[in-house]
């Protein structure tokens, strides 16, 4: 199969006040690929994917999704593009005035208009069963534990069957068993929807399971790239330190 990149980032720079966060990021994600980004806390991982969807305006650089330059899009076109993207926030970002059901319904309804009520309901159930939380459907976010919020956020990101999914630490704060289940869910989403994803994580087991390719971000620059096995064998002490 010919691999064509769905996401291309070239020379991305971003500064917050005095703080130079991104210093020339280059990366690309091929169609159907899971790209894992590793990096220490504060290295700019979340900022990178926020630039990707236009939540943060980059200072300089090129971001192309499906061959379209994100910064050049007007509001309507940007929204048309976002319809194809699922975004899981690091802290969940569940709407706390809405129940779990309404959270998922909100994402779905604004994604595909004119869905029939039974269809919505069955999609919600399916998404919740995927993350093992079908019984929490009528709970409010404040009644959920941290890990449960995370899983609902994951369900909300994938319920729209997006072509691109951006996961910001999908397994942090979860026990090993649930983490493994989530990693497998990410894999199955990749296969089922032919989705291309970026997965930010600190969890090496998750990186190993889900990643086709791994990037390591260090202080706003990408310092290493390769498959899990390649990087694990790396002679570079700093790269190696991630795998201990």
């Amino acid at each position: 199969m010919e691999t064509q990149p769905v996401i291309v980032i070239k020379d991305l720079y971003k500064t917050f006040g005095e703080n130079e966060v991104l210093k020339g990021i280059n990366l690309s994600v091929n169609k159907g690929e899971n790209l894992v980004i590793l990096g220490r806390s504060g290295s700019g991982k979340s900022v990178t994917i926020k630039c990707l969807v236009g939540l943060v305006k980059a200072d300089k650089g090129e971001i192309k999704i499906f061959d379209e330059e994100v910064s050049a899009l007007n509001d309507d076109d940007l929204n048309n593009m976002r319809v194809n993207i699922g975004f899981m926030f690091q802290n969940g970002a569940l709407y706390d005035s809405m129940s779990v059901r309404q959270n998922l319904k909100f994402a779905l309804k604004h994604h595909t208009r004119n869905l029939a009520e039974p269809e919505i309901e069955s999609k919600i159930m399916e998404a919740l069963e995927n993350v093992g939380l079908a019984e929490s459907i009528d709970k409010m976010p404040s009644e959920l534990s941290g890990g449960m919020k995370k899983r609902i956020a994951l369900a909300r990101a994938i319920i729209i069957k997006p072509k691109i999914i951006l996961y910001d630490e999908p397994t942090s704060g979860l026990d090993t068993i649930t983490s493994r289940e989530i990693s497998e869910l990410i894999l199955s989403v990749q296969e089922k929807y032919k989705a291309s994803s970026i997965i930010i994580t600190h969890d090496m087991a998750c990186a190993k399971t889900t990643g086709n390719r791994i990037l390591i971000l260090n202080e706003g620059e990408i310092t290493a790239e390769g498959s899990y096995e390649e990087l694990e064998k790396s002679k570079d002490e700093w790269v190696h330190s991630f795998f201990i």
Binding site: L55, V83, A93, L94, Y95, D96, A107
Partner: peptide
């Protein structure tokens, strides 16, 4: 308070990426 907390907990960003203005 409501919009402030939505802003701080990234709920407004979440809306934006779900293509809701």
């Amino acid at each position: 308070a409501e919009l402030g907390s939505m802003k701080v907990t990234e709920q407004i960003d979440a809306m934006e990426v779900s293509a809701v203005n």
